[in-house]
Amino acid sequence: MTFSDERVRAAIAERFVPLSLDLFRDPREWVRPLGVLWTPTVLFLDCRGAVRYASPDFLPPDLFLDLLDLGEGHVALHWARFGEAQQLFRRVAQREPATPWAPEAFYWWGVAVYLATRSRDELEQVWRILRERFPDSLWAARARTD
């Protein structure tokens, strides 16, 4: 079980405000704006309650730890903490052996780099690696600067 893994528990306790909601028993005005259709779902919210990333169902601990980086990265991106977002996405993108999250992480790492620098060249440097390493991924198909 993911939440019984010590690494997962430590990461959640150190980096997030953990919130548990019952889709049908908690107040509708809390749950409905979150747009959850399937349970369980893990959401990453900013301090205004906006959903910045959503992940349906359970994941094994290693994949869940990557998800924590991605979700935190998306919140950082929307808070204009571009340096922090870059670090989180890059960490997942460069993990060895490659994680299934890597193509997505490369994509958003490039976006975070661009938002920090406004440089198409720097964006292209990241996305080029994505296209070379994961050419058949959906994320490589999206990563076109031409």
Binding site: F3, R9, I12, A13, R15, F16, V17, P18, L19, S20, L21, D22, L23, F24, R25, D26, P27, W30, V31, L34, V36, T39, P40, T41, V42, L43, F44, L45, D46, C47, R48, G49, R52, L68, G71, E72, V75
Partner: peptide, 30 residues
Amino acid sequence: MVVWLRDLPSALEQAQHERRPVLAYVWKDG
């Protein structure tokens, strides 16, 4: 130790105060 809050407004207030994201686990009983 993870202490799961059960109250959305309190979680958002804490997130604002601590400048941390909220990790919301949405489930259903049964």
